[in-house]
Amino acid sequence: MSGVAGLIALAAIAATISAGTIALRLRFADRGLDQPGYRSLHERPTPHGGGLGIVAATLLCGAWAGAAPVWLIPVLVLAAVSWADDWLDLPFWLRLGVHLASAAAVVFFHGPGSPLFVALQVIVIAWSINAYNFMDGADGLAGSMSAVGFTAYAIGFAQAAQPALAGLCIAVAAASASFLLFNWHPARIFMGDVGAIPSGFLAGGLGWYGYDIGAWPLWFAPLVFAPFLFDATVTLLRRAGRGERVWHAHREHYYQRMVRGGFAHGAMCLRWLLVMLAGASLAVVMLLFLDAGGWAGAAAWSAVLVVLGHRIDRQWNRHMETEPAK
């Protein structure tokens, strides 16, 4: 699968597979419901498992594009374990073990270096898996990040003459965009772990691999997914600093604070989408035309995210000051 026309055709097929799979899942919408609760943002029971459409399109279109089994097999394994977790609530240690094993398989298959570097690579990919899952808590948010982020990856791999990986990424992006038709607020279905976990694996794994083979510089992948990584990392560090169990569900992410602090759900997600588009576009433009200024651009964008995070914190603090009086 090569050329712009081929990628467009692959994207159309992936979007169709995703939509068809999700529509089939919705025929059983009365089963597998996420119930509203204190730690959630939704207000009515909503079926999970929409990520099945993304996984199905990724596996089928990725295989057709010629993606290596080292990418497709972990996606299948992670999706199977995550599907079971969506229904059975598997123990944290079991899920983390599968995440680490999947990350290690990718790193070892592609010939790692020193043990310290191997451990760092595995941790980074495993963190990407869990960061994606942490951020899948609002209508349209994770789907938007996948559609934007993997499109940027597809462009990066295409310019590096990696058509199979470009095809895999455009399939994920198109399948995620199709999923958004069902997931934009008010969502008819949630992605669930079955979609978020494999997407996080591909975001982290392909981001590392693209750097490893010289498809893009080290700053590119973190810049593409910067909003997700910033929110997830800062929130985890805050909770860890307070001695909380960081793997437990909560409502302290920036996007959750925005909704709880007064933003309409759709307005919050639209703002996030615009930030994602801006960061990913900056990454692609610098990759294609301004590679020498990549680190400066990444630092500048990081500063912008810090400022945006600070503004959300200030709004949240004002909200907490006035809430008891309501």
Rank of each mutant, 00 (worst) to 15 (best):
A105G: 05
A177R: 04
F150L: 09
Y209N: 08
L290V: 03
D193L: 07
E244P: 05
G266R: 15
W272F: 14
F228H: 14
L229T: 11
F230Y: 13
S18T: 09
G32P: 00
G6S: 06
I170L: 11
A68P: 00
E321R: 14
D212F: 09
M320D: 10
I17G: 02
G192K: 10
G156M: 12
S178W: 03
I197M: 13
V275P: 04
D212L: 06
F220A: 09
A11W: 02
F263D: 13
P36T: 05
G204V: 14
F230K: 09
F179V: 01
A171D: 11
A9S: 06
A142N: 14
Y211E: 12
W295D: 08
A173Y: 11
I8T: 11
A104W: 07
A187L: 07
L41I: 13
G262E: 10
A203M: 15
A280C: 05
D89L: 01
A177V: 01
M135L: 14
I213C: 15
A84Q: 02
V285D: 08
L100S: 00
D86V: 00
H185G: 04
A56G: 05
A15E: 00
L290K: 05
G297K: 06
A138F: 03
M191V: 12
S199R: 11
L10F: 02
W219T: 01
A292R: 12
A15W: 03
P69Y: 08
F182Q: 06
P45V: 04
G262S: 07
A142V: 09
R314Y: 01
R257D: 07
L7E: 06
G20M: 01
L277F: 00
A63G: 01
G195W: 07
V81N: 04
D212I: 06
A296T: 04
A174L: 04
